[in-house]
Simulated scan of single mutants.
Amino acid sequence: MQMSHRISGFQCSPIRRLVPYAREAKKRGIHVYHLNIGQPDIKTPAEALAALSSFPDDIIAYGSSEGRDDLRQAWAEYYNRFGVGITSDDILITTGGSEAIQFSFMTLCDPGDEIIIPEPYYTNVASFANIAMVTLVPVTSTMDECFVLPDIGEFEKRITPRTRGVLLCSPNNPTGHVYSPEELTALLEMCRRHDIFLIVDEVYREFCYDGKTFISVLAYPEYADRVICIDSFSKRFSMCGARIGALITRNKEVRDSALKLSQARLCPPEVEQYVACAAFRAPATYLEDVKKEYEKRRDFFVARLKKIPDIRVSEPLGAFYLVVEFPVDDAEKFAIFMLKDFSHDGSTTMFAPAEDFYVTKGIGRKQARLAYVLNTGDLAAAADCLEAGLAAYRKKYMS
């Protein structure tokens, strides 16, 4: 039977498509260190876990399409602690940050419209764009320049009558770059000049290192009419499976339009919203300790990877990802080799090949995204596997 043209344009996620190889490796008794996916191993706050068993209603009923009032209020208070003047009316609860991105595309764009995006980018955005029939237009940032924002002139070259906005992720997945106030201001000014929107995925906002303070795009009220912020509980509180996110904007027309999409899917998950609200009651030390732990892991992992001969390693400023460039012909071929044909002391390492984190074809073929979400002992063992695996792969395929 004929499948839709829309689905034929989808790519399998490079974060998950090698899972069958990992599953087979585990069946053979191989331990797999998962650096392919941003699944934190840090415990969810006790306050949230306790809420799972204290849901007060005896029926899990439909909730409001815009989300629970208590959660939206708690989220607004969270932002206000950082001096960002947001009200609960500015917040639309979504089923994860993914739905918030998809709602943004479908609210702002007609089929065939364009969103400019710095690459490498969070690869699943390609699927959200396909669903909305939106074209992603890349502006390439490079490892040689530490993935800083390309010159604004490069963005302006790509603006056409079909351009509806720019999508940014900061702290960035997959590079770990944190965009500076100067970079944000330059983008916001460009968006105002061309009457387009700036969408910023700030899911990793807590994880900003080296003593630097994260600046939210919401901290620029003079640009409020053209700003959409994407947020989520997944990484902040280790609640990836709860699927609670938010679309946040002071632009009432955007909110009212996105609410139509929210009403079509009825409501976000009610129990998970109740749990998320409880997570906000976790002490401030919870997030402080999580940030310190990830910064420690970053420092350890970057230093260890740099000891591997001929590997190139980016130095992330935030989030919990980094990009490496392997001395191989094809990072995906190497990834499959690691899972299918290799083990070191009974273990191997899984990572996400980076080629599909680029819109532009042919870039990033030797690169991979690594998520340093494991404890330092496991990161050390994973790096040992990578080093041994690289030597074995190059001997077999490149000598």
Rank of each mutant, 00 (worst) to 15 (best):
S232I: 06
F105N: 15
E270D: 14
A319F: 01
P269S: 14
K296P: 12
Q263C: 08
A242H: 03
Y223C: 00
L218N: 00
G211I: 06
A381Y: 07
K157N: 13
C385I: 05
I199K: 12
E202C: 07
Q39A: 11
E77L: 07
V32I: 13
S262Q: 03
Y397Q: 04
F233T: 05
W75A: 00
D210Y: 09
I230R: 04
A279T: 01
F337S: 00
F155S: 00
V271E: 11
F351T: 01
S104D: 09
K395M: 10
L259H: 11
C109G: 05
R236G: 06
R281E: 15
N130V: 08
L259V: 14
T140W: 05
A264T: 13
P111N: 13
Y274W: 09
R312K: 12
P283K: 04
L247Y: 02
I37K: 10
R81I: 05
R17A: 05
K212W: 09
E154D: 14
A282H: 08
T87D: 15
L49E: 14
I86S: 10
D256H: 08
Q367L: 07
F197S: 03
V302S: 05
K333D: 08
L247M: 11
A264I: 15
E154S: 11
S257K: 13
E47H: 05
S53E: 10
I86H: 08
K26D: 13
A126Q: 05
V139T: 02
V275I: 10
S53V: 12
A264F: 04
S170F: 07
A368L: 11
E114Y: 12
R23A: 15
R16E: 05
C267M: 02
Q2N: 14
A76K: 07
I336H: 02
L167F: 09
E315V: 12
I131L: 13
Q102G: 03
D256F: 05
K296Q: 13
L379W: 02
P221Y: 04
